[in-house]
Computed example of a mutant assay.
Amino acid sequence: MHDLILHHYPMSPFAEKVRLMLGLKGLAWHSVHIPAVMPKPDVIALTGGYRKTPILQIGADIYCDTALIADVLEHRVAEPPLFPAHARGLSRALAQWADTPLFWASMAYTLSPKGAAAMFANRPPGEGQAFAADRAAMRTNMTLLRPADGTSAYRSYLRRLANMLDDQPYLLGEVPCIADLAAYHPLWFTRTLNPVLADIFDATPDVLEWMDRIAAIGHGRPQRLSSTEAVGIAHAATPEPIRPDEVFQDDHGIPLGSRVSVAAEAFGTEATEGTLVGATRTRYTLERHDERAGSVHVHFPRVGYVLKEIKA
């Protein structure tokens, strides 16, 4: 069984979500630090176009999007569960809310003009402008919350989280699950990366105590690996074969073996092209070849992604 390789950078909130998944399950993993902004040549060698952070690599299999990464880790190590038996659907639904409305409200607040100035005040000259330009390119055709509207929504969402913590230590009961990790990571970004704005949590002390409990989970057992080494591992490996019992779910009229593209619906819509070799009820799998990475399978969740056939 190939080792887990996480491609991430320290300040990435979605990477923090996955780092905590690895910690919750007590896993050892290889940590590959990648650039926060483009260009990302080693990432693109593996994914073929997808550039959001993080990605999970297992040999020559590349898993995109934290929702899919959660499923992969749950399948690999079932206990402790990310999706508790008493709230499988609820935990997924709450995590999806946290990854979208909560996340974007927190970003509107934390990266407001005041917040961005504070966050990049002690960084190298030009880093803030480069970050802003990179993220603007990823938000093509997105409608963003204005800082004041984002702040109002963020305060409301924090109160809702506090209400869920009135009589229990975690959002859905006595133990943490995917809902906690997803709700935590945008708040972590505010509190840890931009503490000048962390006073927004003062009105919800229960949320602060919960955040401390989540932080105590830790990140498992990471070991550094270079991105060049990770690309070499992919080249030397063979993608896991598509299991014969995996049911092909055809919602698009696109047969297996077709040349296709997959891209996110909204944020970070750079497409990955390849041959469609798998389409289950939860994911798409594309086979592609790269001169440096060799033959790889790139996996995407169905929810939040657009599959298109590439006509000859």
Rank of each mutant, 00 (worst) to 15 (best):
T228G: 08
A182N: 02
A116W: 02
I214V: 15
R155Q: 14
A162E: 15
A182G: 01
F189M: 10
P205V: 05
H185D: 06
M138H: 13
A179E: 07
G232M: 05
L187Y: 00
G126L: 10
V196K: 10
T190H: 03
A230R: 01
A136L: 12
S226M: 06
P222N: 11
L144R: 12
D166F: 00
L225W: 04
A182H: 04
D202Y: 01
R159Y: 01
A133Q: 15
R146E: 15
L187V: 11
R123D: 11
E209H: 11
L193E: 14
D180R: 10
R221Y: 13
A198H: 06
T151Y: 09
L144A: 13
L187H: 07
M164S: 12
L161V: 14
F120G: 05
K114I: 12
F120S: 07
A116E: 11
V175A: 15
A203L: 08
I200K: 05
T190D: 03
D199G: 09
G150K: 10
Y157R: 02
A162D: 14
P125I: 12
Y170H: 09
R224A: 15
G128S: 10
Y157N: 09
G115W: 11
I217Q: 07
K114F: 02
A198M: 04
R155K: 12
L181P: 06
L172Y: 05
E127I: 00
A153F: 07
Q223Y: 03
A203K: 10
R146I: 05
I178G: 00
H185Y: 13
W188P: 03
K114E: 15
I200P: 03
D180S: 08
W188I: 01
V175F: 09
Q223H: 09
G128L: 11
G115R: 10
R191M: 09
E209S: 14
V196G: 00
V175C: 02
V207M: 03
